[in-house]
């Protein structure tokens, strides 16, 4: 038997390692810039969530209201004498926490529903797609506003409200590819081998869907940051005095005419759009490196 295959060489590439993937990421300029920016934002968020800000973000210093930036208060202080730098860090922390939880929940629920709707068809598809379409019919911000206004407000309920708004996106994004994956030969072959359906879904279908879902996650993260900021800008985010980038953009509008007002307005809003664009940049960066991966050795992630 072995004689029949003598001469056939099977080239087996070294399995891709995690360190190699990191090195590739850092070698590309886009990947490097993205990694640095993400590191900065995440560091700021972690600092704030661990309570390691220079000042307590909600501590008021009445004797130091509306201070311009100084070595003592890097971004100055607001109308209650709260340190804007500390509040910005805390705001970034809050935004990221909300965005990560919201996107995680919506990806989990949406992808599961999308896979079921795509794979089973019939009785599952109808209800899932009906709910999806209804959710899609609302403008996302309006729906998030309604939900945020209904719940008691804290960061978790805000995250859940945003998650509900984003679920239909994940349903749609995952269902389409499942429809075509379902018909692929390797899924059929798995059925022929008698592999249980749940196992086919988890081990054969999901990994082949991962690329699409991951890109959607990176995009959604940046949108979720902006949605959270928009909610709190409109007064339906985390209730005061909790620091939030959106409300910090909103409140100083009334102080614009006062001396020293303009830069305070700038700090949180630019940092909000920063984190948004940074997430997006990360998305692009990971996407581009993944593509490089794929074309480079065709390996799975």
């Amino acid at each position: 038997m072995t004689a029949a295959v003598a001469g056939q060489q099977v080239p087996v590439a070294a399995p891709p390692t995690r360190t190699a993937a990191w090195r590739r990421l850092l070698r590309s300029p886009a990947g490097l810039v993205g990694a640095v920016l993400v590191a900065l934002v995440v560091a700021a968020a972690v600092t704030a969530l661990l309570g390691m800000t220079p000042y307590d973000p909600i501590a008021q210093h009445p004797q130091a209201r509306l201070q311009p930036p100084s070595t003592q208060y890097w971004f100055g202080t607001d109308q209650f004498g709260r340190d804007v730098f500390s509040r910005s860090l805390a705001g970034v922390g809050n935004s990221l926490r909300v965005a990560v939880v919201a996107v995680f929940l919506s990806a989990l629920v949406g992808t599961t529903a999308g896979i079921c709707a795509g794979f089973y068809g019939g009785k599952v598809r109808g209800p899932v797609l009906a709910v999806t379409n209804v959710l899609f019919a609302f403008p996302p911000l309006l729906l998030a506003l309604t939900l945020a206004a209904t719940f008691t407000r804290n960061w978790l309920t805000i995250a859940i409200a945003i998650a509900i708004v984003y679920v239909p996106i994940f349903v749609r994004v995952s269902r389409g590819p499942v429809l075509s994956l379902r018909e692929t030969d390797f899924i059929k072959a798995a059925r022929v081998l008698g592999i249980p359906t749940w196992r086919i879904l988890v081990r054969h279908l999901l990994p082949n869907l991962a690329a699409i879902v991951i890109v959607q996650v990176t995009l959604s993260l940046s949108w979720a940051v902006l949605t959270e900021a928009a909610l709190s800008f409109l007064g339906l985010g985390s209730p005061p005095p909790a620091p939030s980038l959106g409300s910090m953009c909103s409140t100083p509008r009334f102080w614009l005419v006062r001396p020293g007002g303009t830069w305070r307005r700038r700090a949180p809003s630019s940092s909000s759009s920063w984190s948004g664009s940074i997430c997006w940049a990360t998305g692009c960066a990971t996407l581009s490196t993944r593509e490089m991966d794929a074309t480079h050795d065709g390996s799975p992630w």
Binding site: T184, D185, F186, K188, A189, A190, R203, H204, P207, N208, P300
Partner: peptide
């Protein structure tokens, strides 16, 4: 078709 009958990611 053996080209497509195996899961490419396994």
């Amino acid at each position: 078709d053996p080209m497509t009958s195996l899961n490419p990611l396994m």
